Amino acid sequence: MKLFSNTVSTLEHALNYSSAKQKVISQNIANVDTPNYKAKDVSFKAVFQEAMGQSFQARKSDSRHYDFSSRPSHKAGVINKSNVNYNENGNSVDLDKEMADMATNQIYFNALTERINGKFNTLQTVIRGGK
């Protein structure tokens, strides 16, 4: 949908990211007591690259600047956080962090839905002729 100079499609991609993040957080919380379960996260960079259909290219103005590293493509940007252990059974889920991430993601999702709702209300006003 090419309305509002791609704003709606950008908001749609952001909602997809928030949805994927919510699913991953829910999986982490559900597996908090599973031995050797490694917590997962959603990589914004991978989701953004998928949405834009291209990879990041670094434009360096100095040879000392770093290149962007490219990661292999993951399903919806889901990555395993395998370098940490919080429990003696090999589980890397930190329940407090997951709950905080869930609250942050909920605020982000609510802001996105309010914004997209405002865009559609504007479109509805235009269709009605300003009435």
Score class of each variant (00 low, 15 high):
3 L>T: 11
5 S>H: 13
8 V>Q: 02
8 V>I: 13
9 S>H: 11
11 L>W: 07
12 E>I: 02
12 E>Y: 08
12 E>C: 03
13 H>K: 08
14 A>Q: 02
18 S>Q: 05
19 S>K: 11
22 Q>H: 15
25 I>P: 00
25 I>C: 01
27 Q>K: 11
28 N>L: 07
29 I>S: 09
29 I>E: 04
32 V>S: 15
32 V>F: 11
33 D>R: 07
33 D>E: 10
35 P>K: 10
37 Y>W: 11
38 K>C: 02
40 K>I: 03
42 V>I: 05
42 V>M: 03
46 A>G: 08
46 A>N: 02
52 M>P: 06
53 G>Y: 08
53 G>K: 13
54 Q>T: 13
54 Q>I: 08
56 F>K: 00
59 R>D: 11
63 S>M: 05
66 Y>K: 15
66 Y>A: 12
70 S>A: 04
72 P>N: 07
72 P>A: 06
76 A>P: 01
77 G>M: 00
78 V>N: 03
79 I>N: 08
81 K>T: 14
83 N>W: 12
86 Y>N: 05
89 N>Y: 14
93 V>F: 06
93 V>W: 01
93 V>S: 00
93 V>R: 00
93 V>I: 12
94 D>S: 06
96 D>E: 08
97 K>Q: 15
97 K>Y: 15
99 M>A: 14
101 D>A: 11
106 Q>A: 15
106 Q>D: 10
108 Y>M: 04
112 L>G: 01
114 E>P: 06
118 G>S: 09
121 N>K: 13
121 N>D: 13
122 T>I: 08
126 V>A: 13
126 V>M: 12
127 I>P: 02
128 R>S: 06
128 R>E: 02
129 G>E: 08
131 K>T: 06
131 K>R: 11
